[in-house]
Design a protein around this nucleic acid. Structure first.
Length: 846
RNA sequence: GCCCGGAUGGCGAAAUUGGCAGACGCAGCGGACUUAAAAUCCGCAGGCCUUUACCGGUCGUGGGGGUUCAAGUCCCCCUCCGGGCACCA
């Protein structure tokens, strides 16, 4: 009975022991100081939101990062592998409402629980550098950065239409609106509201954010493409159409004259401007307001258009909506040819892109064509094919490689030439210029929420906006607060918070009550890791410059635009503040695939969630982690199959039994030379060195950890198959020792608990993490005999064994001598023989 | 509509440079051990045809075409699935 129990692999017992030991020895996972002479390696997984429990996506993410970190430690790098908490955010307030728990307590309790889970998983983090964004230690630096950016003109306040989620009762950034709905409330349509908001001038960096993408070779192409689309750079021309005289009749005198005089349109195809047969305004264009001021019938029609546009935006399928327009009865003058064209208001023209007005060229634009057909607006041909012989193409003709016709003095120019000339003309005439516009908008950071970083600004009736002086930071978030569902900033209902003295004049003033978007927190947290305890600055530049850029950043692709653009922006701002030297935060980015179950993403609503705790309890942390790496390559989606976890657990049990069985013999031979191996010993050592080579190579780039695990399984299978020889002593003890020792080194990144245990049993005092990664001996790894397939006309006929160094001629001779080959080619003539040494032989016969 | 991925046994997958398709694992089947079961160990295992059996034949990486001595891999066309973008002027 007692012996039976000894034979069983009990991961929970081993893992509990090592977990306790690691907790007592935090230096094990700590980075060396920046004076270290080892090369540095900075690897991080994206920090989680402390929702209360890890999910499988986290487990997968961290298993990848931890395997890499452990491998790099063993490769002799000075590794920084930290973890933190993206701890501000709405769920804490929702939980407060639901359970009457203060957000702070709820959040800190969740952090504690998730930290326990991480430790239970054996993740090797340097907890001394832990960052918790909801603590004043951290968020005071958000405020500090806000003030620096304010000084630099990168923070401003403006009244603007903002995305308002009625469910969150707060403003959302553009990036947080998905198909017209809130990113947190998929069923809730976002409303547009007018509010005074704080903005970060991210557009000041639009060009650099775009250009930088080309240099980020270590980032997935997909992410770079998504960011490129998001930034949405568009080169074109701004042109002012003049308003025809009669528009002034009947308009209110109070309208600003400048707005009455011209309509600025943006176009990427100024070369088609002679074909413009109308000007289309966005329904919310200021000029429309002027035009409808004295025309209630028109106003009603425009309101309808606004309504349609809003509905289309909300529905998300705006591309499918039917185009509608209303003629205003007013006219605009094309500045190039003096032609008068009607001014329309259209539901498909957006106020927040370009100038909110376009010229409509139905002859050379699909959308304009459709619109012109519908409303019988004239259609003009102004571009012809380059080849004069070519037939006149049907309209709309959207080609950009044609030549201009019906365009006055510009006739005969290519589209590109014409664009340039027309731009020059506009500049000279003062009615336009070449212009680059971006889809990227400034980052609205105001949130009318409690659980976030207070914005360090004060409203004074005399001095206006006054920044909180640095010496008064942090502006602390009050803890005693009642969370309610009412609109407006909860902080506005805390008088002690709101009422302050103006730092300038000392009179009574009001504190800003908005808090910052939580994406501010995650935009620079990885810098704080490098100097997490610094009380005088966000971090010491010397330290950050040692660690940055991040060598490897690992996370989900869902952060491709939000977090990853904001943090690139932040890095550039910090660089311009002289705080860091790097232009980009991360050298390499890896986006792992999703964890799915039964063909769908794990989610509570689908009821297909697998709890990591459950897996760890039943199979152990090693098996859970190793399965997460084994079931699929890390960049692909992973289908969670519990039977697979059980399989990995069985494998680890096999490793455990095999090593336990031979431990005494192996340990006794510790340090002895293996001599010149032969027979089974040689076969096993050869397999070992091939496995080392394969796994080492994978860590260096490809990261197909699934095949790394498979390779270890093959090695163990071979050892198991040689169990008799291992037992009998046919395989000498020093070889046995070498095999077990190396096996533990190879397992260390994937199954750290088992590796630590067996490493210890092999008589090692120091941590396996401190042992050097094994080196593959190319001579030992080399096969002396190889199998070469022999094909006849491309079909496999036989396999011959030849010495590994056999020449092409020798292989050919051996292949031809093979009986099965002889039978196949008998009576036929061999036309050609292809011999690829080490690969195959193919006989072409007729 | 545009831009990225992807499609290989019953399932997850492998094949790193164009060179034996299906490594490794799961599920399955057979055997050993056991009173029995579990656990463990050993073995079989892409489909079809043929054969008592062995042997053998043939088809096969979403579909169709092509290049090549040789294609899961390269080229052209198409289908389906996942993701991103989209009246962006």
């Amino acid at each position: 009975m007692a012996e039976d129990r000894e034979q069983r692999y009990e991961p929970t017992v081993i893992e509990a022991k090592w977990q306790a030991r690691w907790a007592a020895e935090p230096a094990l996972y700590a980075a060396d100081p920046v004076t270290s002479n080892k090369p540095k390696y900075y690897v991080i997984e994206m920090l989680p939101y402390p929702s209360g429990a890890l999910h499988m996506g986290h487990v997968r993410n961290y298993s990848i990062g931890d395997a890499l970190a452990r491998h790099m430690w063993m490769r002799g790098y000075n590794v920084l592998h930290p973890m933190g908490w993206d701890a501000f955010g709405l769920p804490a307030e929702n939980a407060a409402l639901k359970n009457n728990t203060p957000p702070r307590e709820w959040t800190l309790a969740n952090i504690a629980a998730m930290k326990r889970q991480m430790q239970r998983l054996g993740l090797g983090y340097d907890w001394a550098t832990e960052v918790t964004t909801c603590l004043p230690d951290y968020y005071r630096w958000n405020q500090w950065f806000f003030l620096r950016m304010y000084e630099k003109g990168l923070v401003y306040r403006k009244k603007s239409k903002v995305n308002w989620c009625p469910e969150c009762a707060t403003v959302l950034a553009n990036e947080q609106v998905i198909d017209g709905r809130c990113w947190r409330h998929e069923d809730t349509f976002v409303e547009q509201r007018d509010l005074e908001q704080w903005f970060f001038r991210i557009t000041a960096y639009a060009e650099e954010l775009l250009e930088g993408l080309d240099k980020l070779q270590g980032w997935p192409e997909k992410v770079r493409t998504m960011q490129r689309n998001w930034i949405g750079r568009s080169e074109g021309t701004e042109v002012d159409f003049w308003l025809a005289e009669r528009i002034n009749e009947g308009t209110e005198k109070s309208e600003p004259a400048a707005e009455r005089k011209r309509i600025r349109v943006f176009t990427t195809r100024v070369d088609t401007i002679f074909g413009a047969t109308s000007v289309q305004l966005a329904p919310e264009h200021p000029l429309v307001a002027a035009m409808t001021a004295a025309d209630s019938a028109l106003r009603a029609q425009v309101n309808k258009l606004i309504d349609e546009q809003k509905k289309a935006k909300e529905a998300g399928d705006i591309g499918a909506i039917e185009k509608h327009g209303v003629p205003t009865g007013h006219f605009a003058i094309n500045p190039y040819n003096g032609e008068q064209v009607p001014i329309w208001v259209a539901n498909y023209v957006l106020m927040d892109y370009g100038s909110g007005a376009i010229m409509s060229v139905p002859g050379h634009d699909e959308r304009d064509f459709e619109f012109a057909k519908k409303y019988a607006i004239p259609i003009k041909r102004v571009i012809a094919p380059r080849d004069p012989q070519a037939e006149e193409p049907e309209l709309p003709f959207v080609a950009e490689d044609g030549v201009l016709v019906n365009s006055g003095e510009y006739n005969g120019l290519s589209c590109a030439q014409a664009q340039k000339k027309l731009q020059e003309m506009a500049a000279r005439g003062g009615f336009g210029e070449a212009k680059v516009i971006f889809r990227l908008k400034d980052w609205g950071v105001s949130r009318q929420r409690y659980w976030g970083t207070p914005i360090p600004m004060i409203h004074c009736d005399r001095d206006g906006l006054v920044p909180v002086p640095d010496a008064q930071l942090p502006v602390l978030l009050p803890h005693q607060i009642e969370i309610t569902q009412q609109g407006g900033s909860p902080l506005g209902r805390v008088p002690e918070f709101v009422h302050v003295k103006c730092p300038k004049c000392g009179d009574a003033a009001r504190r800003e009550t908005d808090t910052m978007d939580t994406f501010v927190d995650s935009s620079w947290y990885f810098y704080r890791y490098t100097d997490a305890k610094n009380a005088n600055a966000p971090f010491d530049s010397k330290v950050a410059n040692y660690w940055f850029p991040i060598d490897q950043y690992i996370g989900g692709v869902e952060h491709a635009i939000l977090h990853l653009i904001y943090s690139r922006f932040w890095t550039k701002v910090m660089r311009d503040l002289g705080m860091v030297k790097n232009d980009e935060p991360a050298q390499r980015l890896f986006t792992q695939g999703m964890v799915i179950k039964d063909g769908a993403k794990m989610s509570k609503s689908k009821g297909n969630v697998v709890s990591p705790d459950d897996m760890v309890e039943r199979y152990g942390a090693d098996a859970t982690r190793m399965y997460a790496l084994f079931a699929a390559p890390p960049d692909r989606d992973l289908d969670w199959q519990e039977d697979g976890v059980a399989g990995v657990s069985r494998f680890l049990g096999r490793v455990w039994r095999l090593s336990t069985k031979h431990m005494a013999a192996a340990r006794a031979a510790k340090g002895a030379a293996t001599g010149t191996p032969s027979g089974v010993s040689l076969k096993l050592l050869r397999k070992l060195h091939q496995t080392i080579a394969k796994i080492t190579l994978d860590f260096e780039g490809r990261w197909h950890f699934n095949t790394c695990v498979a390779a270890i399984m093959e090695l163990v299978n071979d050892m198991q198959a040689a169990d008799a020889q291992l037992t009998s002593g046919e395989v000498p003890a020093p070889v046995l020792y070498e095999l077990l020792r190396s096996l533990m080194l190879l397992l260390a990144p994937f199954a750290p608990f088992l590796a630590a245990q067996m490493w210890n049993e092999l008589g090692e005092e120091a941590a396996v993490l401190r042992a050097p990664w094994p080196k593959s001996d190319p001579i030992l790894a080399k096969e002396d005999e190889i199998e070469v397939p022999v094909q006849v006309n491309g079909k496999l006929v036989s396999v011959v064994r030849v010495p590994a160094e056999a020449s092409g001629k020798d292989i050919e001779a051996t292949a031809l001598a093979e009986e099965k080959v002889q039978v196949r080619i008998a009576g036929k003539s061999v036309v050609k023989i292809i011999v690829v040494p080490g690969k195959l032989v193919n006989l072409v016969v007729k």
